[in-house]
Simulated assay, not measured.
Amino acid sequence: MLYDDLYDVGIAQRRRMFGPEGAEGQTEATTDLDDKLQEVVTRICFGDIWQREGLAVVDRSKITVGMLVALGKAHEIRVHLRGALANGVSPVELREIVLHAFLYAGIPAAVEGMRALKEVLAERGVDLDVEGGLAAATREARA
């Protein structure tokens, strides 16, 4: 693995988004089999592309979540939902990204995205009634 300024910036970005297990936990557990992949992810993805001017990190998180939902990449959706929350994307914004993805990627993709969002919010103890109980109030009004 090549350790340079890009690596240092990339590992710091990974740590901010995913914590130590998503940063050093990934890179220090490499073998000859996967060390090049972790180097590329750390140096190029997070040390270079995520640092470019023109888009804020919060916007990059929103775009990444939308693309992963569209691609149906279940594991990575969850990883990047956690990273998006760490980057300041709100639960309401994440819900809207998943719903918007449905228009262009289809219902199965949005269902998987919403399933992942519910899991990540629940594991973090975030109330799933993100709009002050609007869904519960609507259900009660219909009853």
Rank of each mutant, 00 (worst) to 15 (best):
105 A>C: 10
89 V>F: 05
70 A>E: 00
90 S>E: 14
30 T>Q: 13
10 G>D: 01
13 Q>Y: 01
31 T>G: 15
52 R>C: 14
9 V>L: 14
99 L>A: 09
116 A>C: 15
115 R>P: 02
104 Y>E: 11
76 E>A: 12
106 G>L: 04
104 Y>M: 09
32 D>P: 05
110 A>P: 00
93 E>N: 15
100 H>L: 10
92 V>F: 08
116 A>Y: 08
71 L>E: 05
96 E>D: 14
112 E>K: 06
11 I>N: 10
26 Q>P: 00
46 F>K: 03
21 E>C: 00
91 P>E: 11
100 H>D: 12
8 D>V: 14
57 V>T: 09
27 T>P: 03
59 D>A: 13
55 L>D: 13
108 P>L: 06
41 V>T: 11
52 R>L: 14
8 D>S: 11
10 G>F: 02
66 G>D: 05
31 T>F: 12
116 A>S: 15
119 E>C: 08
85 L>V: 14
69 V>W: 01
75 H>F: 14
95 R>F: 09
94 L>Q: 01
25 G>S: 08
19 G>Q: 01
53 E>I: 08
90 S>R: 09
36 K>T: 14
96 E>A: 07
36 K>C: 07
36 K>Y: 13
22 G>I: 04
94 L>N: 04
77 I>S: 00
35 D>G: 09
75 H>M: 07
103 L>F: 10
89 V>A: 06
120 V>T: 05
26 Q>S: 02
81 L>M: 08
94 L>H: 07
96 E>H: 08
118 K>T: 08
51 Q>E: 13
32 D>N: 15
76 E>Y: 04
73 K>V: 02
97 I>P: 04
9 V>R: 15
103 L>W: 05
73 K>I: 08
96 E>W: 12
67 M>D: 02
59 D>Y: 01
73 K>Q: 09
67 M>V: 01
20 P>A: 14
29 A>T: 12
81 L>C: 07
29 A>S: 15
55 L>F: 15
15 R>E: 13
86 A>Y: 05
83 G>N: 04
97 I>N: 06
47 G>R: 03
104 Y>P: 04
62 K>Q: 06
29 A>N: 12
10 G>L: 12
50 W>F: 10
28 E>D: 13
88 G>Y: 10
10 G>S: 12
70 A>Y: 03
29 A>V: 08
80 H>N: 12
98 V>C: 10
25 G>F: 06
66 G>P: 00
23 A>Q: 12
110 A>R: 00
